[in-house]
Nucleic acid binder design. Structure first.
Lengths: 343, 343
DNA sequence: GGGCTATGCGACGCACAATGTCGCAACCAC
DNA sequence: GTGGTTGCGACATTGTGCGTCGCATAGCCC
């Protein structure tokens, strides 16, 4: 079934099968994969295509140190098939600004071909002055950006691959005290990215309990020979809600009632707390409003409320009110004692 | 210069020049653009390629209601040239989870071809059970996720394009009080995305001052005939630092000194506040540490400190200490009065 | 309506590009 | 050495990419 017009398509398939640099693919493997997809082609043709057609027109390299040659794409080459349009490129730029503070640099780096692609498009477009756009677009992160924990590129590659392909990994892990390195075989069950750190949820080989491993403390990771052990009843959402990351959440929502100052009212009118919120002006107050909303009963919401400081007075639920009050009292106590006896 | 092996390359260029659906491109325009890029080809060949080669192998549509036919890609088709690898796909999934809470849905939607691509890869990969990965990966946002303000897709397209191509726009804008719609001609100077709302910074036609326009209050936007007015000395970072978004920042850093409880110390050891921070255990305290760090003197940092509540005691700078103390006092005052009057 | 232009499309034919085959060389394993 | 695997140059054949021509259709202007 070597229909003639297949040529273009076959080239495209080849280009898709050749991985970006850290990866490589050997000629016979490529032939095999092409055959799987219906392109039965002679080995010789493949060789010709690679060494004469593709590698002269594309940033494709060849590792000819071993005999079945290995082919790979330049690390940062990228080509979108329908090219990016302007709005998408702008969105990518915004996305990058946000993600830089949220994900470890290496992980964002994983997407760098996309981002550079977007930047190039924008640069090319405003032919007059280059990088005009860079002076015009900003993302202001939601909270304070801590410095994301560095993780090793190879680690990320291995761990993410192991998780998704359901394999075990052998890791060398730096324990929290930072003094002892230990070797484990882990059975990955999930990944949670939170704040600026990323954690692998896994069983240690031979144990039943799930533990968290900070990826930036993994010194080395390789796919393991051990068969992967699945935890059948694992539910990552349950796990998180269970409080494992300090985000305990009771299953049900609560009704939040609070008085809020004008700036908060404005903010919430634009970006509501929930889709059932109501805000009503309070009479006889200097610009205060009554807020009612169904919100999840979790740590995040409580923090947000506390972050608003004196601009918000929580009336219900009672528990939150108590917490906030106790919190303020404690803080005050700190500063009161500290100013007199600051030892 | 019709070197023979150009064919593949020409096809690729064509595929890049054909825009995704909302856009369309007419055959003669395509010919023109190809010529610009060095592909001088007969119109007939172009037509043949489009109607016989590409549109049978790719999700490409044709609007033949008017005579110069218009061609376009299916709305959600996407093809990465070096195909996505597993780690990149996983990163995209994480990125999407974060961005959903940060950018308006339509803007994230702009990237949906990328995300669906990633999901498809992951689904295909774990051939055994579909969407395995979806049960294994979570991103926990940094702060409380408010509901992102909805904006109109056409609005985003028009505004972003106008900003980047330096054009004026005619908009119909719903004023903050939500009752009156007004028509303006705006001269876009920048876009700021913050929390879950996105703002256009622009001059109103005929005025010199810069104003903020929330994109979700723009009811309609079209490119204007008016020539674009630039504000030459505009610097978006200065503007933001000036406090326009409630993030006043003094130019210099300050030295933060504070006592922090053990959990905070752990957090900061993993994801530091700044690259100069030091954390030392305090003797004779039950797990408290002394933190010293150079941090920017901005609202964000102050909020973060306040968010830590009683787990952190700020010693310097003095101004922050006062602010936090005053804050706690005010809050306590709220609850003290309210608990006596409202219960 | 007539003529002009722009566009799409079928047909034709030539040149040359794509591909399979063969033979040889290099390398590796045993 | 021997056999298997892979890369590569050469060659012949096929057929396809592409320019060209002619015709049909649809506007547009006088």
């Amino acid at each position: 079934m070597s229909e003639p017009r297949d040529t273009l398509f076959r080239y495209l398939t080849m280009l898709q099968l050749i991985p970006r640099f850290p990866g490589r693919i050997a000629t016979p493997v490529l032939k095999e994969k092409l055959a799987e997809r219906g392109f039965n082609i002679d080995t010789r043709s493949l060789q010709r295509d690679l060494s004469q057609k593709l590698s002269t027109q594309f940033p494709i390299g060849c590792d000819d140190s071993q005999k079945p040659y290995r082919w790979y794409f330049d690390r940062d080459f990228q080509c979108q098939l329908p090219a990016l349009d302007v709005p998408s490129a702008l969105t990518l730029v915004l996305a990058e600004e946000y993600l830089k503070g949220l994900l470890p640099p290496v992980v964002v780096g994983q997407l760098s071909p996309h981002f550079t692609d977007a930047r190039k498009l924008l640069d090319d477009m405003s032919a007059n002055g280059l990088s005009q756009w860079a002076r015009k677009v900003r993302a202001i992160p939601n909270g304070k950006a801590l410095i994301p924990a560095e993780i090793n590129e190879a680690t990320w590659q291995t761990i993410s691959q192991a998780l998704l392909e359901q394999k075990a990994v052998d890791v060398i892990y730096l324990s929290r005290t930072s003094h002892s390195e230990k070797a484990f075989t882990l059975h990955p069950q999930g990944i949670v990215s939170r704040h600026s750190a990323t954690y692998l949820l896994a069983h240690v080989d031979g144990f039943k309990d799930l533990r968290q491993f900070a990826l930036h403390r993994v010194k080395q990771a390789t796919l393991s020979q051990q068969p992967w052990q699945e935890q059948h009843d694992f539910d990552i959402d349950e796990y998180i809600k269970g409080g494992a990351f300090g985000y305990r959440q009771r299953p049900s929502d609560v009704v939040l009632e609070a008085d809020i100052a004008k700036p908060v009212a404005w903010l919430l009118q634009e970006t509501p707390l929930s889709d059932t919120q109501s805000i009503e002006a309070l009479p006889d107050t200097d610009g205060w409003y009554r807020l009612t909303a169904h919100v999840p009963d979790d740590q995040q919401t409580l923090w947000w409320l506390m972050g608003m400081g004196p601009n918000i007075k929580v009336a219900a639920p009672q528990a939150w009110r108590e917490t906030i009050k106790a919190n303020a009292e404690q803080m005050l106590a700190h500063y009161a004692t500290e100013s007199s006896s600051s030892s």
